[in-house]
Every structure is written in structure tokens, then in C-alpha cells.
Amino acid sequence: MPDLKSRPTTTLSLLLRNRLAVVGLVFIALWTLGALLSGLSPYGATQPGAGALLQGPSWAHPFGTDNFGRDLLTRVLAGGRISLWTGLIAIAISLLIGVPLGAFAGFVRGRAGGLVMRLMDMLLAFPSLVLAMAIAAALGPGMVSAMVAVGIVGIPEFARIVHGQVLSLRERDFVEAGHAIGLPGRSILIRHIVPNALAPILVRATLGMGYAILTAASLSFIGLGAQPPDPEWGVLISDGRGYIISGEWWMTTFPGLAIATSILGFNLLGDGLRDVLDPRLRTSK
């Protein structure tokens, strides 16, 4: 066996050797930092009159100002706070409901399991954005309903991943070995099956963050999510929409770039995690 002694052991140190994942981490870190620091800006995120109306980028206002004279940089950074939270909470909702459902369906199989998965299939059959719009509209427009809507739309994805993982893991010898030493089914599921299914879930959750941010922004764009004057990225683009033709490009470009780079960040990080989470890369000291 080749010498494995000099290899790093933690997921983090492996991740830091992956160049693209580091780029992803940097994007995410920048937006997180920006969101945290946006309160320190000399301008308010929502009060009008930080400067003249519709000014292009300058030293005083690097991203320019909007149609109420608000500083766009401050608004974009503050919007990051809303968007990142939306993504996190939506993914948390998908995970908390999807993972147990999928694990249950995969472990018990039979009719109950089949029923759960057919329900997931029905959810998946709707175009996700349309479903999210329907849920958000039913709950009434607002940030919270956007989070819930995006979260619900993500459930079947996780349920399916976990279901598939559990189905294949339950046939593995180490699960049978668990039965052989007399471990109860519940413990096998929690101690052996779910942790081994976790890697693809974590990868999917990271990739899903990007998607959740995008969907939430889309909902806000069409007025079903965050409401003006909240500086959510979708709202910012919606605000700037009318000014594209008249030449005030910065009002849509900078929030658009914010969405694009944050999604790119999560995608790169997710891909890096997928490579790194292979347990065979792990060694003892």
C-alpha cells in the first residue's frame, strides 16, 4: 500500500487544496462579509437621498445611485444579507423534511415507502419555479413565504437523493454486519446509513444554496417575495428594469452580478466538496 502518512486528514484542509473550491469560498466569504458590514455604510439601505438620483458609478458611489438617490453598493451588500438568509433557511427546510422522508422511504420500502416517493414524484412533476410561485402566492407575498416556497420546492430533490443512497447502502455488507451484531434497525439507520449518505446531501445542499438564492430572487422580481424598499437582489433588478433602455445600466448590472457570483461561489464549493468528501481520501494520523 502506498504511503498515505503525509496526506492531510480533515475535510477543510483537503478542500483548501482544491483551487476552484477556494475561489468559490472567496466569493461566498466576500458576500457574507459584505452583508455583515453593510450596516457600517455611511448611507442607509432604504432611506432615499444619499446622493443625486440615477448617478453612474463614481468614487463616492462605486455602484452608482438609484432612482431615489440611494447608494446602490450599500443596497446590494444589504441585499446579500436577505438573499443568503433566504437560501440558508430554504435549504434548511428542504433538508429537515426531505432527508427524513427519503431515509424512511428507503429503509422501510414497501407500500409506505412507495407512497412517500410517489408524493415526491408529484412535487417534482411541477416546474419548480411555477410551484414556488403558486406556494408563495397562496401564502401571500413576502420574504417568509418566499423562503417557505423555495424550501418546499427543494424537498423532493433531497428525499430522492437520500432514498437512493439508503437503498444502495442498506444492501451493503456493513449494514448486514450491523444486523449480525444485533444492532436495532433504528440505530443502523442513524449510525451507519445516514452518515454514509451525508456526503452527497451536503454537496447537493451547497449547490442548492445557489439555486435557492436564484429562485427567491426570481420570486421577489415578480413581486411575490421581498417587497420594496427592502434591498433584496431580485427587488433591485426589478427596480432597475425600467431604466435599462434609458441607459442606467448599473441599476440592474450590479445586483445581477451579485446573484451570478454568489451562485457561482456555491456551485464551485459544491463541486469541490464532492471531490473532497470521498472517505477514501481520509487517513488516521
Binding site: 455488507d173 448486514e176 454486519a177 449480525a180 451484531i181 444485533g182 451507519h192 452518515p195 454514509n196 477514501r280
Partner: peptide
């Protein structure tokens, strides 16, 4: 409880050990 007294050794031990 009885399983403690009757055990099994698998052919593919690698597969029978939790990799994590």
C-alpha cells in the same frame, strides 16, 4: 441479544466495515 453468541465473517471484509 442472541446474536452475541452467533457471529458471521464476511468474504469481502472491506465492504463489511463502515468506511467512515
Amino acid at each position: 441479544a442472541m446474536r452475541a453468541r452467533m457471529q458471521i465473517v464476511f468474504q469481502d471484509t472491506y465492504a463489511s466495515l463502515d468506511p467512515r
